[in-house]
Measured scan of single mutants.
Amino acid sequence: HDVTIHAGDKTIHVHGASEEFLRIIEQAKRDGIHEEELLRLIEELVK
């Protein structure tokens, strides 16, 4: 999957995102996670 995530003034493109990655991001959004926290989460996941 190619994913584009908008968080605040940043746009992150993730190529080859796994289903698990997508679920984590969707869950985080539903939980109302702060955008900066979401960015950190994404950066950890894509290392």
Rank of each mutant, 00 (worst) to 15 (best):
H1F: 15
H1R: 12
H1A: 13
H1V: 15
H1G: 11
H1T: 14
D2R: 10
D2I: 14
V3K: 07
V3I: 15
V3Y: 03
V3D: 06
T4C: 09
T4P: 05
T4M: 01
I5Q: 04
I5W: 00
I5N: 03
I5H: 06
I5S: 03
H6N: 14
H6I: 14
H6M: 05
H6L: 03
A7H: 11
A7K: 02
G8C: 04
G8L: 01
D9C: 04
D9M: 05
K10E: 08
K10T: 12
K10Y: 04
K10G: 07
T11H: 15
T11W: 02
T11I: 13
I12A: 04
I12P: 03
I12Y: 02
I12L: 08
I12T: 05
H13S: 10
H13C: 04
H13L: 06
V14N: 02
H15C: 08
H15F: 01
H15I: 12
G16Y: 02
G16F: 06
G16V: 07
G16D: 11
G16W: 03
G16T: 06
A17H: 04
A17R: 02
A17Q: 06
S18T: 14
S18I: 06
S18M: 03
E19H: 11
E19G: 05
E20S: 05
E20A: 03
E20T: 01
E20P: 00
E20L: 01
F21H: 12
F21R: 02
L22C: 05
L22I: 14
R23T: 14
R23P: 04
R23Q: 15
I24E: 07
I24F: 10
I24V: 10
I24R: 08
I24N: 04
I24A: 14
I24C: 05
I24Y: 06
E26D: 11
E26N: 09
E26K: 05
E26S: 09
E26L: 04
Q27K: 13
Q27W: 00
Q27Y: 00
A28G: 05
A28C: 07
A28M: 13
K29G: 08
K29M: 14
K29S: 12
K29V: 14
R30M: 14
R30F: 09
R30G: 08
D31R: 09
G32E: 06
G32I: 04
G32M: 09
G32T: 03
G32D: 08
I33L: 15
I33A: 14
I33G: 03
H34D: 13
H34R: 12
H34S: 15
H34A: 15
E35C: 08
E35Y: 15
E35M: 15
E35L: 15
E35H: 15
E35F: 15
E35Q: 15
E36Q: 09
E36F: 05
E36M: 09
E36V: 09
E36A: 10
E37A: 12
E37P: 08
E37W: 03
E37D: 15
E37V: 09
L38S: 01
L38Q: 01
L38H: 00
L38M: 09
L38W: 09
L38T: 01
L39V: 13
L39A: 11
L39M: 12
L39D: 04
L39T: 07
R40D: 08
R40T: 11
R40F: 08
R40P: 02
R40M: 11
L41P: 00
L41I: 08
L41N: 01
L41K: 04
I42F: 15
I42H: 01
I42Y: 06
I42C: 02
I42K: 00
I42M: 09
I42A: 05
E43P: 00
E44R: 11
E44Q: 14
E44C: 03
E44M: 13
E44I: 12
L45P: 00
L45M: 13
L45H: 09
V46S: 14
V46M: 15
V46P: 02
V46Q: 10
K47M: 10
K47T: 13
K47Q: 12
K47G: 11
K47S: 11
